[in-house]
Computed example of a mutant assay.
Amino acid sequence: MAKVYLGLGTNLGDKEQNLRDAVQKIEEQVGKVVSLSAFYVTAPWGFASENSFLNAAACVETELSPLEVLQETQMIERELGRTKKSVNEIYSDRLIDIDLLLYEDLVLSVISASGAELILPHPLMAERDFVMKPLAEIAPGLVHPVLGKTMKELTSSFSPQ
């Protein structure tokens, strides 16, 4: 069993229910959710929107490979109503976003058969407080495999909100 860390976000509709639905589908299609952070209200990142986000992080034990986790989480996004992905760092409002942040301590960059790019650890995770705060809540001592710092140490670089 591999431990996978996922970042979850939503800023449309019933946000709390969107996250709960995503967690349920992750349990059904990816693996056992062994920890789930609190839900954090955050401002949009990388684009302007009147809709705040609700974000969380989850640790999942899975038998799936990294690419299979990516495929399953993208399928869950579609099942929950997400119709388009962010491309070239152009972001928009979304019903659900599930990011594969870490897969064990794997460092990887690969393109799937469908053309989706998977980079592990997630290349922008340490820059995003909406990812790091929930992640540090559930895995404060987890070490980033590239940066060599714990999630708690990485979170301390963000100014208090």
Rank of each mutant, 00 (worst) to 15 (best):
A56W: 02
A139D: 07
V41D: 10
G46Q: 08
G115H: 03
L19Y: 02
I96D: 03
W45G: 02
V107I: 15
E79Q: 14
L154N: 00
V23Y: 01
G13F: 14
W45T: 13
L102M: 14
E63G: 15
I138V: 11
G9D: 05
R128Y: 03
V110F: 06
C59D: 08
L80H: 07
P160S: 06
G81N: 04
A116Y: 07
Q24L: 14
T83L: 13
R128K: 09
H144I: 15
S49R: 05
E61N: 08
L19H: 05
E50D: 15
H144D: 12
E137C: 12
R82N: 05
E50C: 11
R128S: 08
K85F: 05
E127K: 10
P134L: 12
A2I: 03
L70A: 05
K32L: 15
E27Q: 12
N11H: 06
E68T: 10
A56L: 04
E72D: 07
G7A: 14
R94S: 00
L147P: 14
A48F: 02
N88M: 07
F39P: 13
S109C: 12
L64R: 09
V143E: 04
K152D: 08
A113D: 15
G115P: 08
V60A: 09
Q74K: 15
C59L: 10
E117T: 11
I76D: 07
A113M: 10
V23W: 05
A22M: 02
E127P: 04
V146M: 10
G148A: 08
P145H: 01
K32F: 14
D129L: 09
E28M: 13
S112P: 12
V131M: 03
M125G: 05
Y103L: 13
P160N: 00
K152R: 10
L8Q: 03
K32W: 05
A22W: 00
E153D: 13
I98V: 10
D14Q: 12
E28C: 10
K32Q: 14
L154P: 07
I111D: 03
T73K: 11
A48W: 00
